[in-house]
Simulated scan of single mutants.
Amino acid sequence: MMAIRGGMSIHLASVTKSFGTHKALNNVSLTIEGGMFFVVLGPSGCGKSTLLRAIAGLEPIDRGEITLDGEPVAGNGLHMPPEQRQVGVVFQSYALWPHMNVAANVAFPLESAGKKRSAVSARVAECLETVALTPFVKRKPAELSGGQRQRVALARCLAQGAGTVLMDEPLANLDPHLRSAMEEELAAFHSASGATTLFITHDQREAMALADKVAVMWDGEILQVDDPDTLYRRPMSKRVAGFIGRSTLVPVTVVRVEGDEADVRLGGVTLEVACPRETVPGPATLLLRPEHLVLATGSHGFAATVQQTIYRGGYWEVFVRVAGIEQDLMMVLPRKAEPGETLRLAILRGWVLPE
C-alpha cells in the first residue's frame, strides 16, 4: 500500500447548533491534529452525527467557527459548501452505485468533476492500491463482502482528494464477528492513507480499539478528550467513568493527599490510590474497575460476601458485598464463586474522581 496525502487538521471553536429549542451542539470546542484517528464516542442522540455533518458542510452551524488546515469553512456568516472542503464521508450504508463496478464507483466523483480520463484512471488505480482492492476492480458491490464494500467507499473518499475522512457509525450494521475484522481493515486504511479520520460511534469497544484520541460526548457537549488508556484509567467525571468500561463508583473519605496519590477510607479499609493533584481531604468518589479487586493471599485483605456470578466465557463476573459499603463491588475471577461464599479481597488501586 502507498500513502495518498497528509491529513488535514480540524478545529472547532465554540460551535453551537440548535434544532428548535434543542441544542445538538452546545459550545463545542475541539482540535484534531492532521493524520490522527480521532473517535467521538457517546450515546444515541448526544450530537455526534450533527458534529460530523457540521464539519462536512452538510449542516450549517448557528455560532462558532470551524477551520480545516487553518482555513475557515464555517462561522461568521461563512458556510463553505461540502464539495469545496476536501472532506469525504462514509455512512453506514456506504452509498455505492449497485450497477457500477468497483473502479467506476471510485471514479464517479472525479468524472463528475470533469477530470480527464487518463488522470481518472491513474487516480483510481492509486486509491484502490491503497485500500488493497486492485484485484476487484471489475466486481459489482453485490459481489463484495461488507468489508470490501467499505473499502470501496473509503477509496472513493481518497479519489476525490479528501484529506479528511468522516465515518458515521460505519460498523453499526455489521455482525459482531465482522466488526473485529473491519476494525483491523480501518486501522490498516488509516495507516496507509495518512488521512485524518474522524470516526463516530456509540460503541466504546470500537473507540478503544481504533482511536489515537477519544472525545466523550454527552447532550451536545464534549466531556473529556484523551487517549484511550488515560480515558479508561483516569476519567474526569462520574458520567465519563460510568460510560467507559465496567466500574463501581463508591463514596470514600480522602484522609491524605501527596502529589498524585491519596489515602482513602472505604468502609473499614484504608487504601492508597491515584488521584488528581487538585484533590483535597474530605468526601470523594472512588472509581474501582473489576481488575482493581483481586483475591488476597494468606490472612491479608478484607472479607467480602459473594452476591451474584455471571459467566462471560473463560471468566466469571463476580459481585461482592463488603461491610460498610452500600453497593456491590464487581471483580473478575477465573473460577465460579457461589452466592454466599466469603472471599478475602485486596484492592490493588483505584482513582479518585475530580469533584
Rank of each mutant, 00 (worst) to 15 (best):
E169T: 03
F37Y: 14
M100N: 01
K17Q: 04
R139W: 06
K116V: 09
C127E: 10
N27S: 13
A24T: 13
N27H: 13
G245E: 05
R149D: 03
A215C: 12
L186K: 00
Q308H: 15
R321W: 09
M1S: 14
L133G: 06
V322W: 05
E221P: 04
I66N: 09
V352P: 02
G298R: 10
A188W: 11
K115N: 08
F189L: 10
L266T: 04
R246A: 14
A54E: 05
F189D: 06
V40R: 07
D175M: 10
L333G: 00
R85D: 04
E206F: 07
A187L: 12
D168P: 05
F19P: 05
V90G: 02
D328A: 15
I244H: 14
A337V: 09
F189T: 01
E355S: 04
V252Y: 01
E33P: 12
P276C: 11
L231W: 07
A172Y: 08
L52G: 14
K23S: 10
R321C: 03
V40P: 01
V322Y: 02
V137N: 03
I200K: 08
M182E: 08
T21R: 08
L223N: 02
R265S: 11
K23A: 14
A215F: 10
G35E: 05
M217G: 11
L329V: 00
E126A: 03
D226W: 09
D175T: 11
G324H: 03
I222Y: 06
K140I: 01
S121W: 03
G194W: 02
K115G: 05
Q92H: 11
I222E: 09
F136G: 08
T297A: 14
N76A: 15
E326Q: 12
R205Q: 14
V255E: 15
D260S: 13
P60G: 08
Y315A: 12
H177M: 12
V73C: 08
S145E: 09
R312A: 12
V89C: 09
F199C: 01
A104W: 12
G77Y: 11
H300C: 09
Y232S: 00
G75L: 13
S44D: 00
M100L: 15
A181Q: 13
T270G: 11
S29I: 06
R234M: 10
M182R: 05
G20I: 07
M80W: 10
A323S: 13
V39N: 05
T279N: 07
S14A: 13
V269A: 12
M36V: 15
L288K: 07
P228S: 10
M208I: 12
W316M: 02
N26W: 12
R139H: 06
D260P: 00
R123K: 11
V131E: 05
T285S: 02
T197A: 15
G267S: 01
P176Y: 07
G20K: 01
E184D: 14
A132D: 15
